[in-house]
Design a protein around this nucleic acid. Structure first.
Length: 920
DNA sequence: TGCATCACG
DNA sequence: GACGTACGTGATGCAC
């Protein structure tokens, strides 16, 4: 019986090589699978050699589990130069695991260890057991492990075996000295510094002569004077650091014992399913599947109908209430490699709600509910049988954090926070809400799970209302009987999973993978973190403001009633209109549907100019009551009792353009434009020892308009740091003064919002004819703007959607409306969406990078708290202010790169203070 | 629940 | 001939 032969496949490096070597290939679902195909053929070759001489008896694929390893602790710049993987490659990573699983080959990874290290550990263990080892890779770092007659390498792309002689050819030294050479020469891709001026040739020569890095360094002072000698002396530390970086870890615990890697044969069924799914017909044919392979390839222009799946059958759902069942589910999830998940809580607010139960799904109709906190009070005679919440979370934690298991959820940000509060960091994940939004923003009224189930699955979900009721009689989920809770909760997980199967191929097919992967998906955890952080509120500031407003409001009320000759409800536009335009006989216009008088700000300001004193008083009354009810009173009630902070909820799918929306409370409309309102911002304070830092993009939408419309004059003005409205005034009116600048500013905004002569006329207080002539002049001076509007509308009418620079789509079905004003409204929105949306994409990119960038500078204490469209607010330790300011500015200013190259600079203004008001 | 109003970018 | 509007949001109070 010959000794076992272990093949270790360096999966991570392989996929990159396959990607770059093979032409782009799209499967029948429209997904890019070139690299997956290359990878699959490589596994195929290995599987073919299974029972042959020198073929594998044991086989495993090794992957990189995490970005950060001990090498980053040694050297924070390690791999820092590495460009992000190409966007077409990113969605293929999970498919690598699918492919490996299809071959029934073990797939190994370990947090904190690179694939190279895991391979080294297995090589050591296998050698100790007297096994033969082949490393399937051509990575030069791994050449350190080659050993005559025991360990070799195999490059399947050219069928080349690498043994000791080949290593000598390449490095001029044996495998035991490869590490020494690597340390001196460095590696620009991994950003291993090495010694400047020393490349592979010199490194090899030096090691041949002296044997080790240390010996070379020791001998350096005696060498003949040269640049090389100086560099060796000056960069001795870097050489030693590099030596550590290239050294492989070979004594870590094995993720799975050697014997588990035994492979007797490849079961056909899962492999066939995988090959069919991706339409790898030549491989299918080799599998002896002529019938399936002969089927004509579906046209690339249409996404095929989703494969049939069983209708939803709630009777198949399981309630998990004992440890054996839980263990069974955990095993099933591990075998499947993915799980759809949904948490049930007793409230809407994920920061304070109690976790009541968890539902899981792995396949259609294969779903369960794990009740955790049902019953337990007098509603039930006794608490229904259920597992201990802490125990369940302890068991689920490794799985929820397992890099190899994809977590799928709908509005996963909620669940992300629920788990984060319990020390569990959900990753990796996909969010079907975000996917739906990236696919259909603007085209769908709702991306709610039950609406999507109806639309895509033709299935009516159990409504939350039917379980818990509404209004006064509404009950919390923990009081729902477990049987009904299981049907409801498991259904949600089942539906999310089914939606995911439909959405995932669509993302690539409809070309929104980039915005999903690069912009929106990262927001789930980033914003989850912000919501969890919350922002500290000084209630005293608010209550003092409330009290002050109160007396002023009472005073105004008395004066208004005196002016009106009697009391009435000032807050009622109906009554106010009657007083102003009826009893007091002032002139004014009717308004639409309800036939009531308009009493809005415009109307009251007009009256004020005509010398009607009550108008001014009502305006002031309105301002103060607004500030009091919406802000100073309401905000105090929103302070979380446990954390003492306000935790807003950001919606990722709230604004059709890709902007965020903030609710409960809305922190995006805290006053700033008036002095009195601005004082509310003083109540947003930093923890002791911290300060608030606010960073704003300056004129980002105008800058993007200058770039996207290609307006040389505006681009030059931004590049030179000029005041953009002054520049516009100069171009339009030939003179810059207060008046022309104000008019220019209005026009600039009119452009962003989709211009109309009437709208502009109203804002400029002039005639539509005059407004039209200004618009004409604007287009004449900046012809790029007119071209942009024309092209955007033409494209939007044809395709039904607009696109941002990052590929975000917004659909505008009303562009085809028969109602003129609906159509015109849609046109204006379509002109605005690419600009507003690109700005939203850019700040989201900044947010996604901010955490890692801060951490890399040792600024892990800095908290990102709020986003207000073009502004980010942070809570920063006092001592870190200067360094934090630099990082924040750098990340925000470079946020578009490298995915998008802008022809205008992005300006960022940063302010610091004890509270948000002072940080501006 | 719909409408009017007004807070923000 | 009426539209009576710049784009994108959310919260509040009134009237029904």
């Amino acid at each position: 019986m010959p000794a076992p032969h272990l093949y270790l496949v360096d999966g991570s490096s392989y996929i990159f090589r396959a990607f770059h070597r093979l032409p782009p290939l799209t499967n029948k679902h429209g997904l890019n699978v070139g690299a997956v195909y290359g990878y699959t053929t490589m596994l195929w070759k290995l599987a073919d050699s299974l029972n042959k001489a020198d073929g594998p008896t044991h086989l495993a694929v090794i992957l990189d589990a995490s970005e950060s390893t001990h090498r980053n602790e040694l050297f924070d710049q390690y791999k820092a130069n590495r460009p992000p993987p190409p966007p077409e490659l990113v969605p293929q990573f999970p498919l690598i695991r699918d492919a490996t699983r299809a071959f029934s080959i073990p797939c190994l990874e370990e947090k904190g260890l690179e694939a190279d290290d895991i391979i080294a550990c297995y090589v050591m263990a296998a050698k100790a057991a007297g096994w033969q080892v082949t490393i399937v890779s051509s990575d030069k770092d791994l050449m350190q492990l080659v050993e005559d007659g025991k360990v070799d390498m195999l490059d399947t792309m050219n069928d080349r075996r690498i043994g000791v002689p080949e290593v000598f050819d390449k490095f001029g030294v044996g495998p035991d000295q490869v590490g020494e050479v690597l340390a001196l020469m460095g590696d620009s891709v991994d950003n291993v510094p090495g010694v400047p001026g020393i490349g592979p040739k010199t490194a090899s020569k030096l090691i041949q002569e002296y044997g080790t890095v240390e010996a070379v360094l020791a001998a350096a002072p005696e060498m003949k004077p040269s640049k090389m000698r100086d560099n060796l002396i000056a960069h001795a530390d870097m050489a030693r650091l590099s030596h550590q970086l290239v050294r492989l870890v070979c004594d870590a615990a094995l993720p799975a014992p050697l014997e588990d890697l035994s492979i007797k044969g490849i079961p056909e069924a899962p492999l066939r399913e995988f090959l069919e799914h991706h339409g790898f017909r030549s491989l299918l044919a080799r599998l002896g599947a002529q019938a399936q392979a002969a089927a004509p390839a579906p046209a690339r222009s249409a996404l095929p109908e989703p494969s049939p799946e069983p209708a939803i059958d709630r009777s198949l759902y399981e309630t998990v209430a004992d440890e054996a069942a839980l263990a069974r589910w955990i095993d099933a999830i591990q075998a499947r490699g993915l799980v759809a998940i949904d948490t049930e809580t007793d409230g809407r607010d994920c920061v304070s709600a109690r976790l009541v139960g968890i539902s899981l799904a792995t396949d259609p109709n294969k779903a369960c509910y794990i009740p955790l906190e049902h019953g337990g009070d007098d509603m039930f005679a006794e608490r229904p049988p259920q597992l201990d919440a802490a125990l369940v979370l302890e068991r689920l934690k490794p799985l929820l954090e397992d890099e190899a298991i994809l977590k799928i959820g709908h509005n996963l940000k909620y669940d992300w926070v629920v788990f984060a509060r319990r020390g569990i960091t959900l990753a990796p994940y996909d969010d079907t809400l975000v996917m739906s939004f990236n696919l259909d923003a603007g085209g769908l009224n709702s991306h709610a799970l039950d609406d999507l189930a109806k639309k895509h699955l033709d299935h009516e979900c159990i409504s939350f209302k039917s379980l818990c009721g509404t209004g006064q009689k509404q009950i919390t989920f923990d009081r729902v009987p477990v049987e009904r809770a299981t049907e409801y909760a498991a259904e949600d997980a089942d539906v999310a999973l089914r939606l995911w199967h439909r959405f995932r191929p669509r993302l690539a097919f409809e070309k929104v993978t980039r915005v999903y992967e690069l912009v929106d998906r990262p927001m789930v955890s980033v914003i989850g973190g912000m919501e969890q952080s919350g922002v500290r509120i000084d209630r005293a500031v608010l209550s003092e403001l409330s009290a002050a407003f109160n007396t002023q409001i009472a005073d105004l009320e008395a004066r208004i009633h005196a002016e009106a000759d009697g009391p009435f409800t000032i807050g009622s536009p109906q009554q106010l209109g009657e007083i102003l335009f009826g009893r007091m006989g002032l002139s004014g216009g009717r308004k639409g549907k309800s036939g009531t008088w308009s009493t809005d700000q415009n109307e009251l300001e007009r009256l004020e100019r005509e010398g009607v004193p009550i108008a001014r008083l009502v305006l002031e009354w309105r301002q103060l009551t607004k500030l009091k009810s919406t802000y100073t009173d309401a905000l105090q009630e929103q302070v979380n009792k446990t954390t003492g902070r306000v935790h807003t909820s950001y919606s990722l799918s709230g604004a059709q353009t890709g902007r965020l929306a903030s609710t409960d409370p809305n922190l995006m409309n805290i006053p700033i434009r008036t002095e009195i309102g601005r004082r509310i911002r003083d109540a947003f304070i930093a923890d002791p020892g911290f300060v608030m830092m606010a960073a704003d993009y300056s004129q980002i939408e105008l800058r993007l308009a200058a770039h996207m419309c290609d307006v040389p004059e505006l681009k030059a003005a931004f590049a030179a740091g000029e005041d953009i409205h002054n520049r516009t005034a100069q171009e339009l009116f030939g003179a810059v003064d207060r008046d022309t600048r104000a008019r220019a500013k209005t026009i600039n905004f009119a452009i962003l919002y989709g211009i109309s002569r009437w709208g502009l006329a109203q804002r400029l207080e002039t005639t539509p004819e005059e407004a039209q002539s200004i618009i004409d002049r604007y287009f004449e001076r900046f012809p790029g703007i007119r071209a942009y509007i024309g092209e955007t509308l033409t494209h939007a009418r044809e395709s039904g959607f607009t696109t941002t620079l990052f590929g975000r789509k917004t659909h505008f079905p009303r562009l085809r409306s028969n109602v003129q004003h609906e159509r015109q409204g849609a046109e204006r929105a379509a002109i605005n969406a690419p600009i507003q949306g690109t700005a939203a994409d850019i700040i989201k990119r900044a947010m996604a990078r901010m955490g890692p960038a801060l951490a890399a500078e040792g600024l892990g204490e800095v908290r990102m708290l709020m986003q207000v469209h073009d502004e980010l607010v942070f809570e920063v330790p006092e001592n870190d202010v200067d360094r934090a300011r630099d990082v924040v500015r750098r990340v925000m200013e470079s946020a578009a790169e490298p995915a998008v190259k802008l022809s205008v600079p992005l300006g960022v203004e940063v302010g610091v203070g004890p509270n948000w008001g002072a940080a501006h």
